[in-house]
Design a protein around this nucleic acid. Structure first.
Lengths: 177, 177
DNA sequence: TTAAACTATGCAAGTTTTTGCATATTTAGT
DNA sequence: ACTAAATATGCAAAAACTTGCATAGTTTAA
């Protein structure tokens, strides 16, 4: 399980509240790791009780209080050791493909409209990713080096989305004729 | 949730036992839907109690008995109605990318060896998929039409794996220099 | 000015998935 | 002759994840 480790990775970069993490999961990391707010809050509590992170309350003017979590040395140890172990290959569960696989039970215009809906989502995602890439590429050599690893994960997102779009266009053509 | 529907899709094609389904999940459908044997057996029981599938015992010489499940008319109805509803976009959770994202805490040769391990797996998968594609392309026009939709999902696998490999090679180069 | 969206967190209950254990026979390889 | 892998299914418990509800103040746009 690595929601745990995803959170540790984020907290290792900077202390954050559950809400901050949620936003980070929606941006950068969200393209390859997803979590709902409940999952994050529950996991934070759990990590806290394991002593891998610690919490301090931060009062804010005009906004609700924040619980800011910070990784502990024991958390860094855990994270480092996780990094040396091989990760198990990714579990893919893609409902859209299940649907297409069994699509002969429905009208092809159903499949097409669904594909087109997803197409729009993926196009939007790709544009967002390319925007981030653009910002990265305009950084100094130094900063580029610093953010090299996150950039590599961004590249995965970009290449992945491009391949998805290529496939979807191919698929739409095939279904249409 | 669509393990349920993935199973119904498979059973709609042909009646199968839990073990048969497990093998199908490992082959064709396995490239986009994964399930452990426990999950399948539990879900079969559940679908049975919902009346969406029915079971008959098949005695086999030399092998343990089989429970062969078959979709019911009510199951087909459920499946058809699922096919008209939009599927929610795919949840991606990729531990390898989390690892790379936070990889500055470990040696780059750790990341490289992990990437290379995964590279081999993906290369193998791609070869398998291309073999299946080759078989498909040597079928008659008629049969090609019949299996068009599964073929489209196969294409997703192929394009996806190719993009993955392209990314991995790029990533390895970047990390090395 | 009113509704919607954003900030910020959490309980409780339910569903789904994973893990560990358990059984029993056959077949293929060494 | 022995071992491993394949065939075939399942219980029980734990862990992970989702859904519905709940609170409460602030900001922003119609």
């Amino acid at each position: 399980m690595s929601l745990k480790h995803a959170i540790l990775v984020l907290l290792e970069t900077e202390p954050s509240s559950g809400y901050d993490l949620l936003k980070q999961f929606k941006n950068s990391l969200g393209y390859f790791w997803n979590a709902k707010h409940q999952q994050i809050y529950q996991q934070l509590k759990h990590l806290s009780s394991e002593g891998l992170i610690e919490c301090r309350l931060e009062k804010q003017a005009g906004k609700p209080d924040k619980k800011v979590y910070k990784i502990t040395t024991s958390g860094v140890t855990e994270l480092s050791s996780w990094l040396t172990e091989p990760v198990s290959p990714n579990k893919i569960n893609d409902a859209l493909l299940v649907k297409i696989y069994g699509g002969h039970l429905t009208l092809s215009r159903n499949l097409l409209s669904e594909l087109e809906d997803h197409l729009i989502l993926h196009q939007t995602t790709l544009l967002q990713l390319k925007e981030i890439e653009h910002k990265y590429l305009s950084l100094s050599k130094n900063l580029q080096k610093k953010y090299q690893l996150p950039y590599i994960t961004l590249r995965r997102g970009i290449l992945g989305e491009e391949a998805w779009l290529q496939w979807a266009n191919e698929a739409i053509k095939m279904i249409k004729k």
